[in-house]
Amino acid sequence: MGFKLLSKLLVYLTASIMAIASPLAFSVDSSGEYPTVSEIPVGEVRLYQIADGVWSHIATQSFDGAVYPSNGLIVRDGDELLLIDTAWGAKNTAALLAEIEKQIGLPVTRAVSTHFHDDRVGGVDVLRAAGVATYASPSTRRLAEVEGNEIPTHSLEGLSSSGDAVRFGPVELFYPGAAHSTDNLIVYVPSASVLYGGCAIYELSRTSAGNVADADLAEWPTSIERIQQHYPEAQFVIPGHGLPGGLDLLKHTTNVVKAHTNRSVVE
């Protein structure tokens, strides 16, 4: 069995187990497998329904001669939608809004960016022009300005110390501490036991640490421990890039980060 097929099978099995364990909360999309990078042309966006009122959005972007996937989250909030992270750029984010209108038909009224990198804030200006209120932590807003990236308009308070959590509509926002970046936030959907790890969490097929220019490698494993301790009931975990899975993604990420750190020390 090929690795790609095995990865998709694991996603399907995880979703099936969740649907059985929580039949009222989960209505997993039966329309197909989780979209992969090879299936999404740059400039297009796919939506994948995880649970009743919960979707991931998947886009792709060219970077350094390669094409990478990027995940975000959409959560229903009454007759409105909360968006977590842009679709990595203005063109993708405009396509995301169009796809949401086509498939869901509810307005996106608020959006949260989970850290300051372009795959999370690139497209904020498109959201703002569409009347979406954009939010991020003060740290993310400051770092985005320093980096020359787009800056969300509103500040999220109460997320300055490791372990801080605040309720934001249908989700809980959690600051686990520094990891992929010093400002990275985690998003949890309690009604569906869905954990969105953003770039602080890796997919299972990833074996290298990737972009760690703004990471705190020493603190990252401790931050992941905080996530595990705060959300032990999480059933569906979405990484910032690639295929979702279960809580095993947290341990896998820790292993990859520690291996990278150990290699760096040896070198």
Rank of each mutant, 00 (worst) to 15 (best):
G2L: 08
G2N: 15
K4R: 05
L6F: 08
S7F: 15
S7Y: 15
L9S: 07
L9T: 10
L10A: 08
L10F: 05
Y12F: 06
S16N: 05
A25I: 06
A25Y: 06
D29R: 08
D29Q: 13
G32H: 15
G32D: 14
E33D: 08
Y34N: 06
Y34W: 08
P35T: 06
S38G: 08
S38E: 08
S38W: 09
V42K: 10
V45C: 03
V45Y: 00
V45S: 10
Q49T: 12
I50A: 11
A51P: 01
D52W: 12
D52S: 10
W55I: 02
A59T: 08
Y68F: 11
P69C: 06
S70Y: 04
G72D: 03
G72N: 01
L73M: 14
I74E: 03
V75R: 03
D77V: 04
G78D: 12
L81K: 00
L81N: 01
T86A: 13
A87I: 00
W88V: 01
W88Y: 00
W88E: 00
G89H: 01
G89Q: 03
T93I: 02
L97E: 02
A98R: 11
A98G: 09
E99R: 14
I100C: 03
K102S: 13
K102A: 15
Q103L: 15
Q103F: 15
P107G: 09
P107Y: 15
V108M: 13
V108T: 14
R110M: 05
T114G: 01
H117P: 00
H117Y: 02
V121L: 06
G122I: 05
V124Y: 03
V124W: 04
G131N: 15
A133G: 09
P138V: 13
T140E: 03
R142M: 12
L143R: 13
E147V: 12
E147H: 05
E150Y: 12
E150R: 04
I151V: 14
I151W: 10
S155M: 10
L156E: 03
L156D: 01
E157I: 14
G158R: 10
G158F: 15
G158Y: 05
S160D: 09
S160K: 14
S161W: 13
A165N: 15
A165S: 13
P170H: 05
P170E: 09
L173I: 09
L173E: 02
P176K: 01
D183G: 01
D183F: 01
N184K: 01
I186N: 03
Y188W: 13
V189Q: 03
A192S: 06
V194Q: 00
V194H: 01
G198V: 04
Y202N: 07
S205M: 11
R206K: 14
T207D: 15
T207W: 09
G210R: 11
N211D: 09
N211A: 12
V212I: 10
V212E: 13
A218K: 15
E219F: 15
E219I: 15
W220S: 01
W220D: 00
W220Q: 00
E225C: 05
I227R: 02
Q228G: 13
Q228P: 05
Q229S: 11
Y231E: 01
A234R: 02
Q235F: 04
P239S: 03
P239C: 01
G242E: 03
L247Y: 05
L249Q: 00
N262P: 06
S264D: 10
